[in-house]
Design a protein around this nucleic acid. Sequence first.
RNA 1: CAGUAGCUGCUCG
Length: 372
Amino acid sequence: TRLSNTLIQLYGRFGGVKQARQVFDAMPSRTIYSWVSMLRAYAQNGHIEEAAQVYNRMPQLDLVTWTTMLVAYAQEGNLRESLQVFSEMRERDIVTWNAMLTAYAQNGCLAEAKEIFEMMPERDFVSCTAILAAYSEAGMVDRARFCFDQMPERNMVTWTTMLAAYAQRGLVDAAAKLFQKMPESDLIACNTMVSAYGQSGRLDEAVQVFEVMPVRSLVTWNAMLAAYAQSCHLDSAKKVFDSMPMKDLVAWTEMLVAYAHAGHLEEAKCVFDKMAQRDVVSWNVMVTAFGQNGYLVEAQRLFESMPFHSVMSWNSILVANSQFGEFQGSRLVFDEMPCRDTASWNALLLAYAQRGLDQKCKFLFDRMPEKS
RNA sequence: CAGUAGCUGCUCG
């Protein structure tokens, strides 16, 4: 039984929901571990309906089960259901509280996250890091730093979260200063710095951190590659790519970006066509690449052959239309979109503004659900 | 043997 439980977990982690289910079904007897593992396997792979079915069929529920289900809903963005599970729980431990806090934090509900943080009977590293990340995500770096300074104790995760908060806002020098003050540094902290320097075009410093690192992971290499790709250093990007001990989909996609930023669309397309896997991000990169360079028809064709679309795919094609098509085209795309975010509204707003359609602009602006 | 926090790729600003 234990072996089967572990198998279910492994399949779940690896995307093999079907196989996980086969193992589960073949079990002569199941423990609560089996049920939770199965529930989690579904949740991790985005099958929330199935996860809920497992949950409803479980012979008994416990703390871990409730928390797992709470997190499953939160990852779907379904905070209503998360909260429902949370309030129905007869007992809660610190993990549950942290899970609910994170649920709010990761969905941009800072006020609710703060409320949970205040209400918690006790707090640990996880709680403090989660609230720190919540401030960071809300763009409130100073609040995050205040929180960081108030913390009774810190570990590598809290330090790195603060580092990343600075990096995300482009405050590289603040990040570097903090990095130097860290009592120790680990792989992830170094990766954060490589990426921070890379994002602000400070390639020499990125390389410097990269070279001093005692161990590197795939993320390290990808961060270095992204740094070159973003700065249009195609040759260096290629060199990094070719020296990588391992390459994943992220690395390949970053190569697409490197080619696209350097204006080499045909080569990007060539790489794209021979990639072993493609996900929605790699597709989006291609659509964006063609769209930004005025190849509206190509972009449109790619968009239509995509096996899946995200909001960003739609936004990319919307922007392409705004810049190189008729403004009615933008409006059509906008109306056609299955879902919109702030970026979509901004893009259409910009399309109108660039054509001097001030009244339409004003009208749209007033109707925006939230403004940035 | 199961649940919660930190790092890399895509859109507008």
